[in-house]
Design a binder for these strands. Sequence first.
DNA 1: CATGAATGAGGGTTCATTCAT
DNA 2: TATGAATGAACCCTCATTCAT
Lengths: 213, 213, 213, 213
Amino acid sequence: MNKKEIKYGLILNAAKSVFAEMGYHKASVSKIAKKAGIGDGTVYLYFSNKEDILKKLFHNTIHDDLSPKAEELVEGINDPRLKLYEFVRNHLHYFGDDYTLSRIIQIEARQSSSEIREAMKPGIRRYFTLIEAIIEDGQKKGVFRKDISKKTARQVIFGSLDEVVTCWVLSSRTYPLSSKVDEVYRALLTAVYNFSFIENFPWTMQPKEFSTK
Amino acid sequence: MNKKEIKYGLILNAAKSVFAEMGYHKASVSKIAKKAGIGDGTVYLYFSNKEDILKKLFHNTIHDDLSPKAEELVEGINDPRLKLYEFVRNHLHYFGDDYTLSRIIQIEARQSSSEIREAMKPGIRRYFTLIEAIIEDGQKKGVFRKDISKKTARQVIFGSLDEVVTCWVLSSRTYPLSSKVDEVYRALLTAVYNFSFIENFPWTMQPKEFSTK
Amino acid sequence: MNKKEIKYGLILNAAKSVFAEMGYHKASVSKIAKKAGIGDGTVYLYFSNKEDILKKLFHNTIHDDLSPKAEELVEGINDPRLKLYEFVRNHLHYFGDDYTLSRIIQIEARQSSSEIREAMKPGIRRYFTLIEAIIEDGQKKGVFRKDISKKTARQVIFGSLDEVVTCWVLSSRTYPLSSKVDEVYRALLTAVYNFSFIENFPWTMQPKEFSTK
Amino acid sequence: MNKKEIKYGLILNAAKSVFAEMGYHKASVSKIAKKAGIGDGTVYLYFSNKEDILKKLFHNTIHDDLSPKAEELVEGINDPRLKLYEFVRNHLHYFGDDYTLSRIIQIEARQSSSEIREAMKPGIRRYFTLIEAIIEDGQKKGVFRKDISKKTARQVIFGSLDEVVTCWVLSSRTYPLSSKVDEVYRALLTAVYNFSFIENFPWTMQPKEFSTK
DNA sequence: CATGAATGAGGGTTCATTCAT
DNA sequence: TATGAATGAACCCTCATTCAT
């Protein structure tokens, strides 16, 4: 790692803690620079502007770290259910182990403008693609239901995990996030599981049919 | 409705469209006032500050409108599964029918500071309580599983719905949100359903047990 | 006293306490109106603007109350020294008995713009005229020195009294202002006294002459 | 003097003339910056806020310039009467030579809030201490009377000088302030002079005794 | 490469004053 | 005469960004 990369990471780390501490909008570039032990102007040699720092922070985390880790983890697994389990476990451990990071991804990154969120899409898309790949694999193998699209399944899985992490962050971490793994996994597995081997699914029929009225 | 309430609503509506158009942080009080056809200072006769507008907008929506509607809808229903269905249907129709509102609730309200989000909690809590009541009812009646806590079930349900709406908003509404109702319902129902009547649930065992390795 | 005058006094009294409590600039017309138990707009039926209230308050006090009282007090006295004594005594008792008023006259009235101070001149001029009349009378009678002009004598007398009152106000009134009467009188009397009956006044010669060098 | 100090003085001078011209409250930071030929924000690199400028201006003048000068002047003098003379002369020349400064100190600085005046106290206290030291020295040497406390004597001296300067400022300077030196000195000297060597002081007796009634 | 002093646009908020009722 | 809702000008201050050194 050359000098440039070192300073780059230095700024990113400083930004991480400053954003987490005081929120994105109230954090000033000057404070980040001070924390990084460099001059204000130096920040602009590595990042084009304040939003760029947040974008890079997000991308570095989701696209360049979390996603590869999750991909690697899932790659060697055959059973789609186990893939899902490992994915859930990894997600909750990843954020549960780094509160500062969680706070930024869950709270501060959402304080950014539409444009910046747009710029974050590529990062999150890689993660989404992985989720959808797990689903698709499960559907092909007949383990996961086909009456729910990849996309919807992904939204349920990611939305659930996201909400669980956000609640944990906002709860001031009164419990370890990892303790939620099994429970969340159970819910998500059955959400996408293929129950077609069971005859008569009154619970999959249209609601009206089992209406008590 | 007296004059005061009319002007109050006037400002709230103006704020709604301005927030949706340019985002909370880039929206200026002056612009809201202009859109409402009133003087800048008048805004401060009805709201204590800019944040207050967003807070009231959120509270008026979630606590005073969406929640009561959902509560009423669910009240007369006996079957927990149907309750869940109606809840999901209502949520997606509610936001699907008002893009401007959805954009604010899903995107802009998250641009606010931690403090403001804290102030929004009471509003959302009423909605959360309703979800948990549905779950609890289903658990008592033996229809919903008991190996998932109310809180986790609520996180999965709300997180999923939230993500579905957010994706719809960010997708520039290329499809009607209501078209997602059945699919999402199917996933969420099975996520919380009580399958204990079926013997041998390999899919509920610990992942390791069905590991192919 | 008719209704009009009653309300006029009502506002003036409310203003007096509000100005004293929070200072002229931080006091709002609205707060004065509330304290007076009337509508905001009503204030403008009796006063042309906020500055006018302060002006009237000052004029009512200095020109219409303090000055006449002092004039009346001095009128029946023959000895200029006694006149001075009574004047000093009256001044310090007058302000010493009403802290709220003192605070406004000494502190708040000086926070006004040059224009407003200009408008206050007529009020204070009457008081100044009285002081100068006392001096002139003393000079005519040979009791007070003539090598100091009326105007300068007045500046010394008023300036001293003013400073004494101001210090008392700023001291949070840890002592009764009236306790200062004799001391201040002694100083002011000798300041203007005619010592020409004493031969050789080394202390009135030009300083250089008694220089020790 | 380095660059920083130059710009600091630049702003202070600009503020001095702007305050004098339009008064403290009507002067805007923006106008001061423009007069100093710098950007609005630059002001805040040298002063924490608008009040701070006034405070520093006052302190720089009274505490760091006028007081040391007066102290130095008085130091080498033995005769308390001469000390007083030099003090008076210096005071009137100091302000008489700089109308802009006088206007601010005499008029604008009094437009500030109580808090800011509180912050100005340390500056003026140094000046007060010097006056009291002169008095004390005179009392010890038997030249100044002891039936008037240091504090009261100081109030008379400072109050008189202050009033003389204020009247000069408000008179639009139709006469040189320095022309007042001898007259004012004569009054102040006799105000604090020890006349006990003269027997029978009818003019120091209680007023009642020489009452004509 | 690095700096940090300088910038200046921008915005939330207050409040004296007005005027329709 | 009395009201008080409405006004909108005015202002302090912040801070992301630049650029001369």
